[in-house]
């Protein structure tokens, strides 16, 4: 896979220049809104709203397709489950299945909600540098009394970044260990317990070594787990406040239906 990570597409649209905190808050608000919206009119309005934002963002359509595609089976499943298992006016019956009108409505509504959720999330991740998202989260967490948990917001943010970037290394190592053991005649089908220990021990050893090396590299570059700055200048500007205000008005309008 070559190309920018996640679905981030660098750009300079209005959405790109918003503060990540504005976008995080907006996604949360829109998420709530999506699940509070019952009427079909409301859901259509949300789709229209999404298309408006998407066209402002100038992001290519494939970004959004890529966000929805992996979930499509799940959405179809939800749709059919609602269709067949909601009691109400039976539309037709085949065999033992009695799709109902209410089921059709519920199914459409629920799948539309999931799709909206994915689309709004994709809009945020595609228009925001991933490290800016963590900076934003870090800044939002900073006032919380995290000291009680024995961490600070800086450590939490670094942990978040690392777990995202370090997990793939772990999987890759698991795969390599498996291949290495298999080439030594280890057979992974028969006795699951044996294969687990044959995999786990070298894997854990390897992971610990990786983690030690990573910790050294971090320390060498001055990491102390204390206050640090960020390349992203987080500053709520007028356009952030205006956007949030507009969004709240929009939510208020939607919830009146």
């Amino acid at each position: 896979m070559q190309g920018p990570v996640f679905s981030f597409v660098p750009g300079d649209s209005f959405l790109h220049t918003l503060d990540p905190r504005t976008k995080l808050a907006a996604v949360m608000l829109l998420g709530i809104l999506t699940f509070r919206t019952e009427s079909f009119f409301g859901i259509v309005t949300l789709f229209v709203f999404f298309f408006a934002l998407a066209s402002i963002s100038g992001l290519p359509a494939r970004v959004f397709l890529r966000a929805v595609r992996p979930m499509i089976l799940f959405i179809i499943f939800i749709f059919f489950a609602q269709l067949f298992f909601t009691k109400g006016h039976v539309l037709t019956s085949f065999w033992i299945l009695n799709p109902s009108l209410e089921g059709l409505q519920n199914g459409l509504r629920l799948s539309a909600r999931f799709i909206l959720l994915l689309l709004f999330a994709a809009l945020m991740t595609a228009s925001t540098d991933p490290s800016a998202i963590t900076s934003g989260i870090e800044r939002m967490l900073r006032p919380l009394p995290l000291r009680w948990l024995g961490v600070n917001s800086f450590e939490l943010a670094t942990m978040m970044n690392l777990s995202i970037s370090f997990l793939p290394i772990l999987f890759e190592r698991a795969e390599r260990t498996k291949v290495a053991q298999a080439s030594r005649g280890m057979y992974f089908g028969k006795n699951p317990l044996r294969s687990v220990s044959a995999l786990a021990i070298p894997l854990i050893k390897g992971v610990i070594r990786d983690a030690e090396e990573l910790a050294l590299a971090m320390e060498s570059r001055g990491y102390q787990g204390t206050r640090r700055t960020s390349i992203h200048e987080l500053r709520m500007q007028r356009r952030d406040w205006i956007s949030l205000f507009a969004l709240i008005l929009f939510a208020d309008f939607m919830l009146r239906f």
């Binding site: 490290s131 971090m218 700055t229 390349i231």
Partner: peptide, 24 residues
């Protein structure tokens, strides 16, 4: 592989100076 701290190249290069608490 075990030296990458950032998820993007930019983030990785920023890691050191961020620890030095330099301005953005």
């Amino acid at each position: 592989e075990t030296q990458f701290i950032g998820r993007t190249v930019e983030e990785d290069l920023a890691f050191g100076p961020e620890n030095l608490c330099l301005p953005p």
